[in-house]
Design a binder for these strands. Structure first.
Lengths: 203, 203
DNA sequence: ACCTTAAAGCAAGAAATTTTGCATTAGGGT
DNA sequence: ACCCTAATGCAAAATTTCTTGCTTTAAGGT
């Protein structure tokens, strides 16, 4: 028989506590700002004891990272409209919206910091593996999904750009706007980026 | 006669203290990581008393921001090679180098966080003015410099891209690579971005 | 050289943040 | 239903972070 695992219990109360804490973190990120987010505050608002938060997440950074990762991962799936341009435009416009609001910028900043140097002391699940983690986990997942979207287009006989081109021409500018300027990016501009992408010289 | 100013004294010792602190922050950012940077540590290493750091900068964030801003501002000036392509390529390659190294990524992250919600309690100079500061100060300065570079090209009869295009097509991707993937960006790739920029349809 | 006082140093204390040992609650398997 | 124990709650203590009042040092002007 296999080695007896410590028998985790992710259900019931644990799940509720997790949800409550996550919710409060999201609220606080949105309303307060960024630096006013302390474990003490989250504990008070959520009714979850400080000790629990310290034991489960360890640091504010790890907590934020957990929240952000879940949030980003559960973001609306990549579109499948039937045409390459349709998919790209929907993706770009949605990304622009997500990332534009005051909330989006916060998420971006948080994501940028996340999952790097210090991992939580107690939580093995998403533990940072290597020293120089190549990227934020979210990016990898999303990359795979986007590649699938491009592959679908190729399967239909269209000639899609590469994933790198998509990231560089559409995603990077949107992130850039959100991160360094607080100005929102309109749907029209997002579509202009897609135009630019589609008019790149095909390899 | 004018109102008697408090008569600042930025010289001598003050300057030395500032330099010492800045140097230590740079070292710590480079060697340790990001989260291990505490005022206590900076004080100990620099030989400057904690109290001084608290009074001059107030928070770690403000301190980092000050260091980063100075560092970025003093970055090599925008090039002036005599041709648009030359300027752009030199700029792109240098930016890629600056931003690529382990240090560059840290700077980027720090800059991204900097100058937003909480300003230092005691330091009027670079105080965050509005509620929703449009961008990092550095970005504005650099934007002006880059615009001048583009204007020079226009003055020579070349037809340069807009500043927005330059930022979106060259700068954003470079930042994106540095921020979300730790992979360095080679000079060749940087130049490819310039090619892409220059082959955009002219307005 | 000699004042004046901004800026830095120092030490004590206040206020947070984080840890720890034990009691209590409630999953989840039998 | 019952048991075992992971997960949480609780309170006290340890630790770190930040503030405050006062003293000392040294710019920078005369």
């Amino acid at each position: 028989m296999a080695v007896q695992q410590p028998a985790r219990r992710p259900g019931g109360r644990t799940a509720r506590v997790r949800a409550a804490v996550h919710q409060v973190v999201l609220d606080l990120l949105a309303e307060e700002g960024w630096s006013d987010l302390s474990i003490a505050l989250v504990a008070e608002r959520s009714g979850v004891h400080q000790t629990t938060i310290y034991r489960r997440w360890g640091t504010v950074q790890a907590l934020i990272d957990d929240v952000i990762t879940e949030r980003l991962t559960r973001l609306s799936p990549v579109p499948d409209t039937g045409t390459l341009r349709g998919d790209l435009e929907e993706y770009a416009v949605r990304l622009a919206e997500d990332v534009a609001g005051a909330r989006g910028a916060l998420f971006l900043r948080a994501a940028m910091l996340g999952t790097h140097a210090g991992a939580a002391p107690d939580v093995p699940p998403g533990a940072t593996s290597g020293a120089e983690g190549p990227a934020h986990v979210y990016m990898l997942d999303r990359g795979v999904q986007l590649q699938a979207m491009l592959d679908r287009a190729a399967g239909r006989g269209e000639s899609p750009p590469t994933l790198l081109e998509l990231l560089e021409v559409v995603q990077a500018p949107l992130y850039f706007h959100a991160a360094f300027f607080n100005r929102p990016v309109g749907a029209d501009h997002a579509r202009a980026l897609v135009d630019r992408l589609l008019s790149l010289p095909r390899a």
